[in-house]
Design a protein around this nucleic acid. Structure first.
Lengths: 338, 338
DNA sequence: GTGAAAGCGCTAACAC
DNA sequence: GTGTTAGCGCTTTCAC
C-alpha cells in the first residue's frame, strides 16, 4: 500500500518487439545514427508513434547524452533574468536540448548542492548565472561537465567559457551620459562586498565609472557609495543618502536593484528627478521602464546574451576545449531621469 | 578528440571497495534502510566522506526514487512566482528533496514536452503552476507521477491535488473594499479567453466580483472589461479604456499584470488615483508595492501557498491516493489607490 | 546483519 | 544494414 501503482512502461524493448526489430535498431533511429535504412526507420517511427514511446532520460544518462542542460540562477527575483533565460532556452531548444533550472537562493552551499545534483543527473551542459562560488570551484565543476558562465568576468580561465556584456564600457557610457548633461559631482552607487571583487560585474562597472571620471578630469570627485542588496537594509541606507547635506548632483547606479528603489524614494521625498537629482542605472529591467519610474538604464540585451551563452555551451558539448570569453556591447536606454 | 576526457567517477563500487564491504551495504547506508549495524554505517560514511562520493541521480532514477521534484512554470515574468517557488523549495528541501524548474513559455506543446522530460528523468513529483493544459491531460500525467497543481481550480478531480487561494473570496474582498469607499460604478478588468473558463483563477475572481456587486444591489452596474495579456496589445486597450466617456469610477483588476500598467498609464495621463479613479488589484507583487505605484492589491501569501503544495506533494509521494484540494484565505494589502 | 546477483532502460562496440 | 551483447551505477530481493 506504500507503492503507488503505475501502468507498466513502454520501453525500447516494447517498441523493438512491436516493430519486429532489435533494440539496437530502435536506439539508432532514436539518435539519428548512421546505418539505418529508410524502411526500418519508417517502421520504427510508426511503432514509436503508436505506442507513445518516450526514451527514459534517466537511462540515457547512464550511457550517453541526456539532451538536457541545466541553468543555475542566484535567485528568481531579478527581473533581468527572465529575458536572459528565454534567449538561452530558445537557442538550446533549436539544437534539440531541454533546459532545466535550479535556483541557488544566493547561498553558496545551496548553489553547490544544486550544481552537483544536476551533474549527477548527467546533464550535458551547465549555464551558471552570476554564481556566488569562485573561479577555482567552478574549474572543478568544469572538469566534469561543459560550463558557461554569465555575470562573472574570468578572461584568463581556459576550462570554461564566459559571456558578459562589457560592464566596464557600460559604466563608462552611463557616466559619460551624465557628464554630457553637465553634471560634475557624480557619485556611483555600488555593492557592499565581502568577497573578492575581481571579476564581479559591479567591480567592472566601477572601473568604467572611474575611467570616465578620470578622463573628464574629475578624479577628485570620484565617490563610490556602497549599499546593501536586501530591501530591508537598503531602504534606510538610501534614505540616509538622500538626506546628506553634501549629496552629489547625480548618481550612476550599478543596477536597477538599487536604481529603481532610489528613484522611487527620491521622488516620494519630493525631489524632482531630473532637476534636483540626475540618475542613470544599469540592467534596463521592466520596472525601470514603467511610466511612473521612467529610469534611464544601461541595456544588456539579455536575450542576445543568453543566446550567446547557449552557442558557447553547444560548441563545447560538441568537443571544443579552448575557452571563449565573449563580450556584448551595452547601450543606454534613454529616459528622462537625468 | 571529439569526446571530452573526464576523470573516472567515484561510484558506489569504489566506496564499497574502500570500506571493504559490499555495494548492497553502501546502498543501504545511503538510503537509511533497516538492517545495518552502527559500526558498518560509520565505516561506510567515512569512506563516502573521504572519497567525496555522490550517488548518481540518473542511476537511482532507473530503480527507485531520485529525491528530485520538478516545477513547471508558465513563464518567468510574473513577479508573483519567485516567492511562491521559494516557499515550495524550502519545504521540499526540509524533506530532503531537490527542486528543478522548467519554464513552459505559455505554449502548450512546450509545456507538455517539459513535463514529459521531467517524468522521463524519473522525478518523484511534479508541481504545475497555472498550467495551460487542461484537466484531462493533467490526469494522464498524474497517473505517471504524483502531481500538485496551483492556479487551477479542479475541486472534483481525485488523481491529483490542488492548492489555491480562494480566488472567489479575493474578488469579493477587493470589490467590497471599493464599495466601502463609496464607489458604485465599479467594473472589473479581466482576461480575454479562448479556452474553457471553468477552474481558471480569473474566472473565480470574476465570480467574487459578481457576487459582491449583486449583494450590494448593483447587478445592473456589473461590467467586465477584457484586456489582452501581452504588453504590446494591452497598452492601447488600457489607453482606450481610460478615454471612454462612460468610464467607470473604479476598477477591480484581476491581476497586477493589468493593475500595475493601468495605474501607471492613468497617472501618466494626469488622472489622480485615487480621486479620478479607484483601483484595487490582485497578487500584491513587488511592482505594486513601489512607492511611485502604491497599488492596493489582494495578497495570496505566495510563500504559504508554495509550502502548502509541497506538503501535498510529499504526502502523495509517500503513498496517499485520495485527493486534497486546499484553499488559502486571501487578504487585502491596503494602499491608497482607492 | 551482510553480501551475491538480477535487473532498471538505454547506448555503443562489435559481429554477422 | 541489422542484431547481439556488455555494461552504465544503482536498488532490491533473497540467500547465507
Amino acid at each position: 500500500m506504500d507503492k503507488p501503482v503505475r501502468p507498466s512502461r513502454v520501453t525500447i524493448r516494447t517498441v523493438a518487439a512491436d516493430a519486429g526489430v532489435s533494440v539496437a535498431a530502435v536506439s539508432k533511429v532514436l539518435r539519428n545514427a548512421y546505418g539505418v535504412s529508410e524502411a526500418l526507420r519508417e517502421n520504427v517511427m510508426q511503432s514509436i508513434e503508436k505506442l507513445g514511446y518516450r526514451p527514459s532520460t534517466a537511462a540515457r544518462g547512464m550511457r550517453g547524452r541526456t539532451f538536457t542542460v541545466g541553468v543555475l540562477l542566484v535567485g528568481m527575483d531579478n527581473p533581468f533574468l527572465p529575458p536572459l533565460v528565454g534567449g538561452f532556452k530558445r537557442t538550446m531548444a533549436k539544437a534539440g536540448y531541454n533546459t532545466l533550472i535550479g535556483v541557488g537562493e544566493a547561498r553558496t552551499h545551496v548553489e553547490s548542492a544544486l550544481i552537483e545534483s544536476m551533474i549527477d543527473m548527467r546533464i550535458d551542459g551547465l549555464l551558471l548565472i552570476a554564481p556566488r562560488i569562485g573561479g577555482e570551484v567552478l574549474e572543478r565543476y568544469a572538469s566534469q561537465v561543459p560550463v558557461s558562465v554569465i555575470g562573472h568576468h574570468e578572461h584568463t580561465v581556459t576550462t570554461f567559457d564566459t559571456a558578459n556584456i562589457d560592464d566596464c564600457m557600460g559604466g563608462r557610457i552611463a557616466t559619460e551620459a551624465l557628464l554630457a548633461k553637465g553634471y560634475r559631482d557624480i557619485a556611483m552607487l555600488s555593492l557592499i562586498y565581502n568577497r573578492r571583487k575581481e571579476g564581479q560585474v559591479w567591480y567592472e562597472r566601477e572601473r568604467g565609472y572611474r575611467a570616465a571620471m578620470t578622463d573628464a578630469g574629475l578624479e577628485t570627485s570620484i565617490e563610490i557609495v556602497r549599499i546593501a542588496e536586501r530591501p530591508e537594509e537598503m531602504q534606510p541606507q538610501l534614505h540616509e543618502l538622500l538626506a546628506r547635506p553634501d549629496r552629489p548632483e547625480a548618481f550612476f547606479c550599478w543596477s536597477d536593484i538599487h536604481g529603481v528603489p532610489l528613484i522611487n524614494l527620491a521622488r516620494r521625498e519630493n525631489n524632482s528627478v531630473p532637476g534636483d537629482l540626475g540618475l542613470v542605472s544599469f540592467d534596463n529591467t521592466a520596472p525601470a521602464a514603467l511610466p511612473l519610474v521612467d529610469l534611464a538604464s544601461i541595456d544588456q540585451s539579455p536575450d542576445r546574451l543568453g543566446a550567446l551563452a547557449a552557442d558557447q555551451l553547444i560548441s563545447r558539448i560538441k568537443g571544443r576545449t579552448d575557452a571563449r570569453h565573449d563580450l556584448i556591447e551595452p547601450s543606454l536606454a534613454l529616459r528622462p531621469s537625468y
